[in-house]
Design a protein around this nucleic acid. Sequence first.
RNA 1: GCGCCCGUAGCUCAGCUGGAUAGAGCGACGGCCUCCGAAGCCGUAGGUCAGAGGUUCGACUCCUCUCGGGCGCGCCA
Length: 593
Amino acid sequence: MATSARYPARPTQESQTVTDLHRHLREKLLAAIADLGLPATEAAGMLRLDPPRNRDHGDVALGAFQLAKLAKLPPPKFAAEIAARIAADDIIESAVAAGPFVNFKFRRGAMAREVLTAIHSDAAPYGKAATNDQVVCIDFSSPNIAKPFHIGHMRSTVLGNALCRIHRHLGATVHGINHLGDWGMPFAKMMTAYMRFGDEVELHKSPMRHMFELYKRYDAEAKANPELNEEAAQRFKALESGEDNEERRMWQLLRDESLKAFQGPYSRLGVTFDHITGESFFEDKMDAAMARVEKAGVLEESDGADVVWLKDQGIKQPCLLRKSDGTTLYHTRDLAAAFYREETFHPTRILYIVGGEQKLHFAQLKGVLIKMKEAIADAIEHVPFGLVLSKGPEGKWEKFASRSGNAVFLDEILDEAVRKVRGVIAEKNPDLDDPDAVAEHVGVSAIIFNDLKNGRIKDVKFDWDAMLAFEGETGPYVQYACARLSSILRKVDLPVPAVDSIDFELLADAERVLLTMMDFAAAVQRAADQSEPSVVTHFTIALAGEIHSYLADHYVVSAEPAVRNARLVLVDAARRLLTTGLDLLGIKAPERM
RNA sequence: GCGCCCGUAGCUCAGCUGGAUAGAGCGACGGCCUCCGAAGCCGUAGGUCAGAGGUUCGACUCCUCUCGGGCGCGCCA
């Protein structure tokens, strides 16, 4: 599909952020390649510098296969020719041919200077892209507020929050949007349930619990009484009529109470939105959206419903935009939302952080826009994620279902995590100030971190033990590194020296830490390009591991002044970078824990 | 039935859009607190990358098929 100027292709690996050291090496290599008589542009495209699997080989490696073919030389011979043409200088320490590879090493002092200066510079956040014209709408969390906030809602919330932060860090204009499910049949069912079995006192006392009870009761009763669903459909029709009637007042009441109840989990998770525009927000915009579809000449009637066929795009199921009773659907509202966002925000990307089971829905949404020849179609991007599974009675992993009652309220999980952290604090750090606040913070972070650790497409196996583990690759592990670094800075009780003032050569023993730090910018960029926050999560784990390892046998406080100063800058940089990394995930780094 | 996703160590997962001996954490076993936080560090054991073909100089990575698990498929969201 051709992309318009308004909706340019996504950033590619080529434009990916690299350090000045890499740029320097790349220039040298291009000169060497030119010296060997290869066509410059073609060769430049083949010039890929990757960190070698085994970092003992070097800091970056060039696999010379493609270039050697272009040069009509055997790869080992070509690699040797390249290596011979890269002279050591104040940045490059060595270039060594190893079979078909060329391995490069940067000077440790140059590496330390580059990465530490960049981290300490206040001009721009480390890892920020030079320019960024992207306007990114992120549609996330978007819970159906007629149901309680449970573990299943957390993924979209936490993933979307992290993606908002990551894009902002890269300098994009971001609109975080909570597209609440506050319209349609689920809401009508809740209204019906409330009017039949509800209790106003209970509703105000504990809205989430009460609505959960109503939800379960409705589900059970509707199985025996299908007319309940008919009543709900009628109530939805009455609501959508736009008249000031009982349904509308009921809708308002339930919506207000739900929204209030949802503030609890949101504030605990530290998640905020730029716009809370639920489906109901588009109530008065759907006629215009439908008219636009009609005008494009793609709307067809089928069994009394209005649909758009997408067979030419390989989608067999039609997209339903209006039911035979005249009411609207999920698709209608998403379409109206897409038009609204286009006009209001002029986005380059619209990310829908919605479970993978809705893949067809978003393919259809995009398909309709493509068929209508709407430019916004190019911006539509479904960011799917895996299900949350729980262990069933027979030990099999199965989908959480709120109706079967195995749903776990998010608050319960957070409370459990906080309780456990509180216990750890009592044991390990009994003198800590305000342990309850720290426990709340570390416990909640552990849950968030756990959710952002694995690739988003994977199903999450809900496992209390893993969720509440605080050792190894966990949130507390990374936060602990931050606390430990802060502690060292406190103990030294000296201002962190100016970066320029230290002898960078003294940090040669921290090469693994420095090398890991250099990966940060690329990690953030990749996380944004692929909508994959776990890349950042893994970065924080890696850096925490390297700094912990370094600290085990490199003392700061007792080192001689020149070494101490250099290490202070390193420690401060590691703390800053870990803090930034965690911040991108929506987690704060504690000074003490 | 059709479409899509997943399958890597006992468990939970990485593997940077094909590259050099497949890496972590947990669990197991063994070490390290008379210098900065042991929520830590160091080491040992553990893998025919589900299976079979194919493409390639080179495949965990791409293609085809098979097996296993999951999700989706017209008036729900």
